[in-house]
Write a protein that binds this DNA or RNA. Sequence first.
DNA 1: CCTCAATAATTTGACTGCTTAATTAAGAAT
DNA 2: ATTCTTAATTAAGCAGTCAAATTATTGAGG
Lengths: 396, 396
Amino acid sequence: MVSPKTDTEQIRRENRRLLVETLRHQGPLARVELGAITSLSPATVTAITSELVAQGHLQELSSSEEPSGRGRPRVALSLVADSAHYIGIKISINEIRLMLGNYAGEVTKQFSVQLNTSALSPQQLVHELSGEVQRFIDKHHLQMAELKGIGLAVQGVVDQQHGGILWSPAFRQAQPGLAEALSQRFNLPALIANDADCLALALHTQPRYRDTKDLIAIQLGYGVGMGLIQNGQLYLGSRGAIAEFGHTKVSLDGPLCRCGARGCLEAYLGDYALLRDASAFVTLPPGDPMHPSEEQMQYIQKQASLGNENILHIYQQAGRMLGLGLSNLMALYNPEKIVISGPGVRAAPLSQDPIQEALQESLLPYLRDTDCVETHHWNEDLTGKGIIAMLQKMSD
Amino acid sequence: MVSPKTDTEQIRRENRRLLVETLRHQGPLARVELGAITSLSPATVTAITSELVAQGHLQELSSSEEPSGRGRPRVALSLVADSAHYIGIKISINEIRLMLGNYAGEVTKQFSVQLNTSALSPQQLVHELSGEVQRFIDKHHLQMAELKGIGLAVQGVVDQQHGGILWSPAFRQAQPGLAEALSQRFNLPALIANDADCLALALHTQPRYRDTKDLIAIQLGYGVGMGLIQNGQLYLGSRGAIAEFGHTKVSLDGPLCRCGARGCLEAYLGDYALLRDASAFVTLPPGDPMHPSEEQMQYIQKQASLGNENILHIYQQAGRMLGLGLSNLMALYNPEKIVISGPGVRAAPLSQDPIQEALQESLLPYLRDTDCVETHHWNEDLTGKGIIAMLQKMSD
DNA sequence: CCTCAATAATTTGACTGCTTAATTAAGAAT
DNA sequence: ATTCTTAATTAAGCAGTCAAATTATTGAGG
């Protein structure tokens, strides 16, 4: 039997995290306000915040604002954004992107590298990543002392416990021990996460979804990913890999999925599936069909918008299947919100109606009017914010 | 923003619960053993246990056992089984069963009443239940002082937060405010739970599944229910209703389900569905087709075993669909174990193979060899144990 | 029978955390 | 200048944990 025993230091850690997160979300706040929001006593707020001020993570704001009325004016506390830095690495097919996050949770620098990922061995991958990270550190003159962690966001199935990649479209082989290797190389904590989990976490920090206790994030793109917020926090299965929404079956004899089975949702919805199906009707812009480019996707989408019935039908079919999958998701999880994002939302106008239709057809009566599915634009890639947030959760 | 602030009393409550649950699971234990298992310090164990002894919930066992060897002999602590009582009520179609649970978590008395449930109004239901509970209390000479709570286990969709029944096959109408009404009538805490959640909780207390952090319980019977243990504890969605596994879609144009949609898993697997499908091929024993009796189910099952190809085919089809549903479940939740129980497991021999086949066909490669699905006999109804356990979790 | 060794259980002292209540701080109002 | 009001800090007290010391209870051995 495991023993989740609780002790007194855990309390402090929890409450500190609570305060810091409140400040991250609601901006600079005075101690009273923090107390009111968190329902911690003023004394506790003082104790924790003065500790954080001493460490340089918090800062009193010179209150040269509007006349605050009577009484001693409240002095706002704000996070010292550059009191800590985190490095996030997003690994995609043939591209890695490095991101610098600060204590406030913002992504301040980004840098992308093209790299033929698929053939890399674990050793080579560690070598490449280490090199890029070192260059990144040098370029931005980062002090090792203020670097607090490295986080990797990966498309595919990760083993978060052991810090490895079980399967990813970016690599031909598994990448075990990746986190450990990077951790040792830079003497920093390192973690690996699925990119859809990062999306879920990042969405959950946004004002619109902050108070949502149960949220499912669906990432449409090359594949179909899913991340899950339960009880206000990211849920990862006990085995570190969960929620392969893309590989739920929506038909018995559907198209072949790259996982080897038939009828997976992903085999209707994934970029590679859309492209494959569309290629029967139009000649595509050049490119590796296994790794669809944004141009290719834009192209077929445009064809559909321009009235190509065959391709429109592909999108509508995909929408219907997504609706079916979503209805199953709602039946099983009954979340407050399902947010669909990722590059694939570009096609939302084409498949919106079939999604809704399929949803309404399949939903349980008492779920039917809950309006919980929405899309979120993909103007910025939220993965970075997510991986930074994850790093922070483990370190503060 | 909600504030799950932590304080010192929470620690004590948690640790007390930990100790009591350890004793419930592993029987009488000495203080050292408790300390070792929970990894609480001896001092803490003493503090908490002496409090419980003073309250009469714990008792030192006169250690008249085997020579324990050198040293001061350990004195075992045991729960005082009748230091508290709980009343569990299982509400099924046309039957309510009252159960008495004690502090040790055992169900000691049971009593069933036949009752035409379907037409009852909320007022009538409260009236009937109150009457039965009062009779039950009188019959067993229960002291109100040692009664700690009333729990209802209901087939169907419950709203645990508000203590009401949203939908149940037992009733034509919703039953809002049921828990509150009973709570006031007897001046006791009252809660309502789904019966599959109870099953999940009860299974999780069994030795075989005690250390399973993530467990899904499937209850096959009139319908198809599901309960979920996550992170070692029962998970109920934020809205109190979750996991309608029976209403996940496994085919686009399947048979009609009582929920109004087509292709629900339940429309293949539920007793009412099996019976409906079988009725085309055999003449059934008499009975209300909407509420299949155990005799009817036994009858058609026997027909299948005796070689009726048509009926066998129904079971096999059901098995295939269950396999498909399970594979989706595994893709979405990736639990350590899925345990199938409920009266419907009687047909397990008939559908075992198709289940496995469908599973293997649909599973993701890296899940394919995990052997996580198993069945659990239905010799005893575990619902009672579950609802008692749920009451205990809220009160100790 | 007496002493010692071994183990169990309790007690004690130190530490940490939170809360309430009192105190101090810093301006606004008069 | 004095009073009022609100913010922040400090002080006192309590709850909880743990490590270490102490006490209790037995078996082993002379």
